[in-house]
Design a protein around this nucleic acid. Structure first.
Lengths: 258, 258
DNA sequence: CGCCTAATTGATTAGAATCAAGCTTTGTGG
DNA sequence: CCACAAAGCTTGATTCTAATCAATTAGGCG
């Protein structure tokens, strides 16, 4: 079970997941609220695309906040860097997801945003968004919802992770990934894992050896299958039951946000 | 060191911290953006005050979202309740702080909000807020900032807590509390602790015995002093250094948000 | 007064970190 | 083209932190 992931991350110059506009949070707002074409056109005109390579920064902590970003394909991470250079990953951003929102708070981005693999990123100027929101209350409400959701869905996961065993952390994280990949149209049980074990461990607060061991344990239990560049969930229900059987067992609320 | 907190919570019918409008996030927006008096008056008219007793619910998970809330005095908690009735505290809400914002996402409150002690809560109808925001772009931006801050400041703490030792978790949490109490005008080194050890442990993902032990350990090291209904931070700098010395040591970004 | 909740303290145990090698793949340079 | 270095992943042995189990104390309230 070693052949699976080795080196995959460094060699693949193909992003692990692609994304068409149908998964974009903003696109959803457009459709739902029937934004006038003029506004939409304007928004499109003010949108720029970037192509960061693996390890490249989209922005750095402290940079002046000007835009929010949507992952078109690939994967990014937000990380906090300590005074001594140690970094802590606070979020992974999957195709279709928005990031950089927290810069609204005080005008600076609070985290570094780094490409986990070669990616394609859509940049949207916040001034444009705000202006549209001013002209259209539905958009305003829509953006509130996006912000609230984008931040909250992550928060709910983090809330749980503090109290759980290493195995439960990993299972809930996989389940969370599954939901999120499904949202952008990917198969919910065939997850790309473009990030390294070290990155996963960093994010979940586990040693990377523990991540490896638990992946192995779950595979031995026939609940998952490690694949070339990702992981296949063979029985999501059973996985979840295993995670919530012994410990705290908080319901996933993310799933109720249909 | 036992005499300190015993029974204090159940007996005190005096909230642990009071709050005048000067600490309110909304008040801050008003002042900063010089909201027209008419709007302010209208906002005041549509504001109701509640007086939940210890253990009483302000709202329950799944209730229809209609208002956001500001703690005037006392303390509340947001909690997720699992299918088997187990609860996980996801946030404490201190005087001056807003909660209930996450209800924006899908129109229902995602968590239960419960008074940790007898409290006084200000309810503000979201429809009113949104209407004001529609009339005033500065308010819109202000509300975005409040939302972003309210959610993000908590998120930053939670992000750290996943990776840290029990002692570091508690120290960072105390430091976070200190910042937040200071914002509403309380002394930054004389913290009320109206919640029980069990609640603290639940929130931080620790056994309540561990909370007790670490409080004791820090007191023995002369870094804190347990008081009648709270805790005194005797050397905040040294405390922080102790928390960040060995482990990951991520900078507190909250403090940079002046 | 006696029950209940909260806090504390001690003894034991389990889970995950740490330390220490290997192994594989990829990329580089002679 | 091959040797070698660097990353990433896996596995095993050991250590240590914090959970669990168990018992005691102290107030508050009926």
């Amino acid at each position: 079970m070693n052949e699976a992931n080795s080196g995959c991350v460094t060699t693949s110059h193909q992003p692990s997941a692609y994304f068409s506009c149908k998964g974009c949070w903003l696109a959803e707002v457009c459709k739902r609220h029937a934004v006038p074409d003029t506004d939409l056109k304007w928004l499109r005109l003010n949108t720029a695309t970037r192509h960061p390579q693996r390890g490249a920064a989209i922005y750095r902590s402290g940079d002046r906040f000007h835009s929010v970003f949507v992952v078109k394909c690939g994967t990014c991470k937000s990380l906090a860097i300590s005074s001594r250079g140690q970094e802590k990953i606070v979020a992974f951003h999957l195709p279709g997801e928005m990031f950089g929102l927290l810069g609204i708070t005080n005008g600076d981005y609070p985290y570094d945003a780094i490409a986990v693999e070669d990616s394609e990123i859509c940049a949207i100027r916040y001034a444009d968004l705000a202006a549209i929101c001013g002209k259209n209350l539905e958009w305003q409400r829509g953006l509130f919802r996006i912000m609230s959701y984008a931040i909250a869905s992550h928060e709910e996961l983090m809330d749980q992770l503090g109290s759980l065993s290493a195995e439960a952390k990993i299972i809930l994280w996989l389940d969370n990934l599954s939901d999120r990949y499904a949202h952008s149209g990917c198969a919910a049980d065939e997850l790309p894992l473009p990030m390294t074990r070290v990155e996963i461990g960093n994010y979940l607060g586990l040693a990377h050896e523990t991540v490896t061991r638990i992946f192995g344990r779950l595979q031995k239990a026939n609940l998952v299958q490690l694949t070339e560049c990702g992981i296949q969930l063979k029985d999501r229900a059973k996985l979840l039951k295993r995670a919530t059987a012994d410990t705290s067992d908080c319901e996933k609320r993310t799933s109720t946000m249909t």
